[in-house]
């Protein structure tokens, strides 16, 4: 099981702040495509992915038990 946190616009589009994916192993690029097709998200291409609270690259592999967060462009400060 992979836990995926959503924030800001993405959270509102999905209607919840996290989703659970029943997947053993997937790349960052693939998880973005999967979320995109499943929820029709507006900002997924512009978003970064964090795995276990660190920014990940497109080809990094996510495994069951990892915590994923989709990070749309930030606007703190």
């Amino acid at each position: 099981m992979i836990e995926v946190f959503l924030f800001a616009q993405l959270q509102e589009e999905v209607g919840k702040d996290k989703v659970l994916l029943d997947i053993k192993e997937i790349t960052v690029k693939e998880i973005k495509h999967q979320l995109q097709s499943q929820f029709d998200l507006s900002q997924i291409e512009a978003s970064m992915v964090a795995v276990n609270e660190a920014y990940a690259l497109e080809d990094d592999i996510i495994r069951s038990g990892d915590t994923v967060a989709i990070i749309p462009p930030v606007s703190g400060g």
Binding site: A8, A50, Y55, A69, V74, S75, G76, G77
Partner: peptide, 11 residues
């Protein structure tokens, strides 16, 4: 840097 890398969003 905060505006680049810190996962905070404002509405």
């Amino acid at each position: 840097r905060i505006k680049q890398i810190v996962p905070i969003w404002k509405k």
